[in-house]
Design a binder for these strands. Structure first.
Lengths: 299, 299
DNA sequence: TAAAAATACTCCATAGGTATTTTAT
DNA sequence: ATAAAATACCTATGGAGTATTTTTA
């Protein structure tokens, strides 16, 4: 990916008429935006925005630049597409960014198959939170991202990968919960282990509970733990339960170490998505996506 | 002026198929060019040039990039034109780069008139050698340049300003040369003061002498001095003569301090030129050029 | 007074330089 | 052997960050 970041900054600011907003979408600080715009104004020797303290608008020079900047960005876009097509090889590096759960539980088997079929692709997997993944894509430090389907800035293309389900899990020997199903009122009595706040998984859970009119204070939260692995290990020695992505416990379900308890009329779903920069059509990326989808469709 | 220097580097290298040549024309070092190209290749993840030790050629990716890069540069060009038209004011900064003689003797009166008529233009005058002036223009540290008409890279537009004449000058009281004319054989006997080697003035002199079949060793060089002012001061206390641009001695001719001695059939002329980046159509630049030309035409 | 942009400062990565080595004809 | 590009190393500038201040609706 080759482009002019300063122009991109300008376009974003012009689109939103806000330095702060642009800063968020480009994952840089607001003073960084200020400096880019100042530099541009200095280069063209005239102001691009009229500043009115807490709002801005484009000057005629700004309008003109916006027009050209868009054209230039489009050219860069096209260029990058064509360059990707050209190097369409099944060899070379592929930098995948994935949020923690996906990187730990979903991708490893897929990557194993892929490496087998495409030994010349050099996979590298970065795991980080969703925001950081989006940032990696925008700054061209990753070729493809996999995260929970959060809102993303418009230059990021989203595509559904799979549905994920968050389920109630207990130790398979748990005698406090012997049914395969419970109703949502019962849920509030069960001692629960959940992830620390800030986790993507916890966010979805809270949203679903809200829909079902359950307040977080209604829950009987026994403990918050920092990782899925910690939670699973805790469950092995406790009669508490946890809300976990179904994908994180396939092993333990097969071994009969853990057991899923259905919560009647409270399904918690989320979509896991591929995200990539528009025009990211490199062959390796396509191969990767296709394999991911196939892996889950054959089941 | 706003553009992408790295792309410009690539275009230059692609045009000449030479890193070294591109380095010269862009006034940067060869390793700098190497680094730019490497960076580009890294960004697009494929080589742009095939290196064969002492020659290079474009890869298909290189051909593709060249195509787009030219389009992008053209857009930047147009953009800059339009921006210049927009800010067409008779106020603001005007950065002039001029070679020493021009900056010291030719521009001051012109700038005085101009400041009078356009008090809102903020003139700044940088004096340096011709090469440095060209470099200032290319790197957008000057808006307009004035130098002796040397060869310049193709992105610099040249336009003749005035003809300059290098003349033989002596102290007005010099009793060793009383004629108004001498022939070129006599020239070789006269003790001469000239500029140090490297000076643009000296270059033209040597070329003219060569044409007249006079070797430098034929001349009776009494001393080399570092500036025109030094030479003039020397002449005031000596019976030596000097070859100086006619423009540097107008004052002393009026005061009858110095005297011009014509050398028969050995006129030494050079052209002084405006140089600017193509598409430098800012109003202030036009005003400046027009005033320069007018100043000399009215005479 | 509250929201947004500007400023002050610190830090690090990058672009540039010079000197030298490697490479392919 | 030579011409050209690559490499090594050093320096300075610019871009990014955080914390804070200024501005105006």
């Amino acid at each position: 990916m080759i482009f002019n970041f300063r122009l991109k900054v300008f376009i974003k600011v012009a689109e939103h008429l806000s330095f702060t907003q642009a800063a968020h979408e480009l994952y840089v600080s607001q003073p960084a935006i200020t400096k880019h715009i100042n530099k541009l104004e200095q280069q063209i020797k005239q102001p691009l925005f009229k500043r009115r303290g807490n709002s801005i608008s484009l000057t005629p020079a700004g309008e003109l630049l916006l027009d050209y900047a868009c054209q230039i960005e489009d050219l860069y876009q096209e260029l990058n597409n064509d360059l990707n097509l050209l190097q369409d090889r099944t060899s070379g590096p592929l930098r995948i960014g994935a949020s923690t759960t996906i990187a730990q539980y979903i991708l490893p088997p897929i990557l194993a198959t892929l490496k087998d079929r495409h030994p010349h692709i050099e996979f590298s997997l970065i795991s980080a939170n969703s925001k950081r993944i989006r940032q990696l894509l925008i700054t061209d430090q990753a070729d493809i991202g996999l995260t929970e389907g959060n809102t993303a800035p418009p230059e990021l293309q989203q595509e559904t990968f799979i549905k994920d389900e968050i389920v109630l899990v207990t130790n398979a020997q748990n005698r406090h919960i012997q049914q395969a199903q419970i109703d949502k009122e019962r849920l509030t009595q069960i001692p629960l282990i959940i992830r620390e706040s800030g986790s993507g998984t916890l966010d979805v859970i809270e949203q679903a509970l809200k829909k079902a009119s359950i307040k977080r204070s209604d829950l009987n939260i026994e403990m918050r733990l920092g990782s899925t692995e910690s939670i699973k290990n805790y469950l092995h020695h406790s009669n508490a339960s946890a809300l976990l992505s179904i994908h994180t416990i396939t092993e333990e379900l097969n071994n009969n170490q853990l057991r899923v308890v259905e919560i009647k009329s409270l399904p918690i779903y989320r979509k896991l998505k591929f995200i990539s920069l528009h025009g990211q059509h490199a062959r390796r990326v396509q191969i990767f996506k296709k394999r991911c989808l196939k892996h889950y469709n054959k089941k």
